[in-house]
Design a protein around this nucleic acid. Structure first.
Lengths: 219, 219
DNA sequence: CCATCTTTTGATAGTTACTCTCATTTGAGA
DNA sequence: TCTCAAATGAGAGTAACTATCAAAAGATGG
């Protein structure tokens, strides 16, 4: 439970990440292998988690199932928890928020963008994966914790956006409060959704939650 | 980094905790010893953290400094991080919030109570301790993480209070959002305070932060 | 196709936070 | 003083990491 920090040589990130599959950039063999290893690790991990639960599944098992050494596992995922983190939505959110009028209250922008994104963007499979991740996050504290931490989390991005929009260099307390509140609402809503078995519509829930934040004063 | 959970027999909590020093209840020898062990552990730990930093200080060192076995350490603090958590203010907060008119918006109650509590309640020494804890929390991710998690954190208590006040059995999404937002604001403010070297007035900051939450819609 | 250079990998040997179990000590209460 | 429950210590074990280094495998220029 010490602060994890990988000083060990890691396989370098495929730079423009996942977009170049669509763009013409042909992946080199090396890059393809790395991608496949990463996917295999994640897939095997999720399978094992589903079969045996989070705690009963060791990193060694995951590595074995993916046919790599434990060392290699840690080169791809600095912690076991990181298997469940993805920040792939952050850039999209950032872009969409920047496209909104700058004089609009930030929470209004965020609400519109987040709800819209969730409503449109998720394919069935993405939805299912998100659900699995959130289910685990909801039941395993250390995962929730890592999720709240910030690495792959929206707070950092929201903070930057807010600071930028306010024309500030460093975030004020108010800015930090706004970012923290939205991020907390986002996480809480996802967890709530997972708690209820993923049966309700996530976009609706999110709309409700952020709407509630807007009128916190009245309840 | 597995989910920590103490299944080992722990020294039982001195039930009404810390209040009975003021009340007439004379502590038994056993209770006094437990209290002293807990305090010693925490004090020695803080000293070592200050001297060597968080990571360089091992649990074994702390136990040795407090002259107990490592086993005993874990009986008192399920994780190293827990050394920095205290929920001693929670009961006071709960009581004070319950004393407010039930038809008042919850955030208004919370703001009044929290700010009042912080403004009045902290002796110089409490203030200094809180500052040290927050300083560490602000700089050591795993601690911040554990702080956000909820164990010693106000979210759980706020959630109960809110659910109770709304006359519900189980918390709705709205209730969860409110609790999460207030809790996040509380933590964020404390971290901000620590970031700034503890020079500003915590009560003022808190008032500002919760006030900002009330008008999130306008910014 | 070959030789070299770089990146990725695996093996091995720690360290540390924690868990479990069990025998011993110590305070509580009669 | 005897008895019982609670608290402690000792020791062995697990699992998540970290650090190091040599071997394997793609990339690259000729």
């Amino acid at each position: 439970m010490t602060t994890p920090r990988s000083a060990r040589p890691r396989p370098s990130d495929p730079s423009p990440r996942s977009l170049e599959e669509l763009a013409g950039a042909p992946l080199s063999l090396r890059e393809r292998k790395k991608l496949r290893t990463r996917q295999t690790l994640r897939r095997e991990a999720m399978r094992l988690f589903a079969e045996q639960g989070w705690e009963a599944t060791t990193v060694d098992q995951i590595a074995a199932a993916a046919e790599v050494s434990p060392s290699t596992f840690f080169r791809y995922f600095p912690t076991k928890e990181d298997l469940l983190l993805t920040d792939e939505y952050d850039p999209l959110m950032a872009e969409a928020i920047r496209a909104r009028p700058a004089d609009e209250p930030f929470l209004t922008s965020a609400r519109a963008v987040l709800v819209g994104l969730v409503r449109r963007m998720l394919s069935e499979q993405e939805r299912a994966e998100l659900y699995e991740r959130m289910r685990l996050a909801a039941s395993v504290p250390s995962v929730r914790v890592r999720m709240l931490e910030g690495a792959g989390q929206p707070r950092g991005m929201l903070l930057d956006l807010l600071t930028e929009r306010a024309g500030l260099d460093a975030p004020t307390l108010e800015v930090r409060i706004t970012a923290a509140a939205i991020s907390a609402a986002l996480t809480e809503t996802s967890l709530y959704w997972a708690d209820r078995g993923g049966r309700e519509d996530l976009a609706d829930l999110l709309d409700l939650a952020l709407g509630h934040l807007q009128e916190l004063d009245a309840h």
